[in-house]
Amino acid sequence: MFNLRLHEVSLGYGERTVLHDISLEAKPEEMLGIIGPNGSGKSTLIRGITRLISPNSGQILLDGHDVATMSRTDLARLVAVVPQNPVLPGLFTAFEVVLMGRTPHLGLLRHEGEKDLAIVRRAMEATQTVAFTDRRIGELSGGERQRLTIARALAQEPKILLLDEPTAHLDINYQMETLDLARELCREQGLIVVATLHDLNLAAQYCDRLVMLSDGRIYCHGTPEAVINARTIKEVYGAEVYVFRHPVNNLPATLIVSEKDRNKLRQKSV
C-alpha cells in the first residue's frame, strides 16, 4: 500500500532547526491532522514534504522512495498542496488557474489535451467551482479562491493531498464542506490526506489520527480522543479550555473559557 513515512526528520531554515526528529506515517484512506500552536512547525512540515526545504537529517519517504532523490515533476504527480495563503494572478480566469494543476503531467513544452481539460472540469465539479469557470480570480471571494486551489490540487491527480490550514478563511459552512470533501476524497479515492489545522474541533471531527506538535517536536499522537484533552492543550498551547464529549458522536469537543470565568472552570475540573 502506498504510504508516506517520515523517519527521524529534522527540518529548518539555514542554521535554525524548526522541527526535530519527526517520525510519522500516513496511510491511504486515513486523514492525518497536524495540530499545534503558532510557530510549532506545522507549515514547515508541509514545506519539507514538498521539498521546498530539505531535511537537515532523516528521510521523507514516499512508498519507500526518498523525496530528496525524486525529480520535482515526479514529486508533483504524487503530492499536491493547498497552501495557506496562495498568491493567485488576478487577471487569469478560474479555469486557467485550475488548469495549472496539470503542469506536472505536461512537462515543459506540451499543451493540455482533451483529457487534461476533462480532468480539470471534473475537479471543478467536485469542488463546486464550475459556476465561476470564466470569472477572473480578482473578482472571487477568499472562500471561492480556496476551493479553486483545492480544485487545482485535484487536477494534479495526486496520491497525497496536503492541506495547509484549509479552513483559515472560510465560514463555518465552507469549513465543513471543505473537510467533508477532503474526507470523501480520502475514503473513496484512497488518497492520503494530511491537514494542518488550528481549529481543534474540526481536527477532532474529521481526522482519524492527530499529531500534536510542540516546539518543533511531536508532543503526542494518536486518535483525537487520546490527543485532545484539557491537560495536553494546557501544556502545549498554554490555554485553559473545557473539553467534553460531542453529544452526537462522542468525539472530543473543546470549548474556550474567557478570562472572567476561569475560576469557575478550575472549580469544575477539580
Binding site: R47, T50, R51, L52, R72, T73, D74, L75, A76, R77, V79, A80, V81, P83, P86, V87, L88, P89, F92, E96, V97, M100, G101, T103, P104, L106, L108, L109, H111, Q156
Partner: peptide, 20 residues
C-alpha cells in the same frame, strides 16, 4: 516555448515548485 511555464510563474514561486 516557455509561455505555459510563464503562466504558472504567475503564482508565487513556491506554488510553481509544488506544481513540479
Amino acid at each position: 516555448l516557455h509561455a505555459r511555464p510563464l503562466n504558472v510563474m504567475q503564482l508565487d514561486e513556491e506554488q510553481a515548485q509544488q506544481l513540479g
